[in-house]
């Protein structure tokens, strides 16, 4: 697909957004009764469920236990109905395992694992509808679930995508823009310090554009961070007032 379809002459994208506009974010916390923490997050049409269990005893082989840290275990799963064509294997294929590993590494950096040696923290993420930015929505949803579970974090982790079409950086790409052949840069940062925890790029562009696209992605992350913080505050305030009433 050529660049003209992804970005019109008036500077509008396929779904009518401007290049620096995020998709609508909706979130609710504490939706599962069983899990220690859970969250449901929608970014545009991408819908993700996240559940957190832990810190709890190591399950399975005890050899995985780390003597000074908690072991973070993530499972990234895409539902069979999440894409246009039915997906045969929700998890266990290479892409899902790679995503799980990256989620594990991202959260192992953000969670204060040194407080729980020899234990395990599970994060389960299920993509219900995939419309671009699957990984970023998963990171954001898992982060909300961790906050809901009360797991101590060094800082919140926020993630966002950015792309480059006709020398204009776009923020928060959807599936059509992603599969159209334009590069996609995924960044996860800690909003307070601006430090990058995870970054990956698919497709290619010239190295001179890297700075621009990276800036766009980081700004997108910070904007998403502000929105998610508001949602978190709302949720915690709701919990708080119910205590005071009694």
């Amino acid at each position: 697909m050529s660049g003209t379809e992804l970005l019109s002459d008036q500077g509008l994208r396929i779904d009518g957004r401007k290049p620096n506009e995020l998709r609508r974010i909706r979130c609710s916390l504490g939706i599962f009764a069983q899990a220690d923490g859970s969250a449901y997050l929608e970014q545009g049409n991408t819908k993700v469920l996240a559940a957190v269990y832990g810190p709890h005893e190591i399950r399975g082989s005890k050899s995985k236990a780390l003597h000074d840290k908690a072991f973070v275990n993530c499972q990234y799963s895409t539902a069979t109905f999440s894409m246009g064509e039915r997906k045969r294997r929700p998890r266990g294929d290479r892409k899902s395992t790679e995503m799980s590993t990256h989620l594990e590494e991202t959260f192992a950096a953000a969670i204060r694992t040194e407080l729980y040696p020899r234990s395990q923290i599970d994060i389960f993420v299920e993509v219900l509808q995939a419309d671009g930015g699957n990984y970023t929505t998963c990171v954001n949803a898992a982060m909300m679930a961790l906050v809901d579970a009360g797991v101590p974090l060094k800082d919140t982790v926020v993630s966002c995508t950015a792309s480059l079409v006709k020398d204009t950086p776009l923020v928060d790409v959807n599936h059509v823009e992603q599969s159209g052949g334009s590069p996609e840069l995924v960044v996860s940062i800690l909003p307070h310090s601006g430090e990058i925890v995870y970054m990956s790029l698919t497709q290619r562009f010239h190295i001179d554009h890297l700075s621009k696209v990276l800036d766009t992605a980081i700004k997108g992350c910070k904007d998403i961070g502000v929105i998610l913080k508001e949602i978190m505050k709302g949720h915690l305030t709701k919990l708080d007032t119910s205590l005071q009433a009694s």
Binding site: S193, I196, I207, L210
Partner: peptide
């Protein structure tokens, strides 16, 4: 041609700044 084909930062203890990446 100095085009970036792929990029990945990974690791469970890494915090890197944008300038270092560039």
């Amino acid at each position: 041609y100095r085009e970036l084909c792929t990029l990945q930062i990974s690791g469970d203890g890494v915090f890197i700044r944008k300038e270092a990446v560039l």
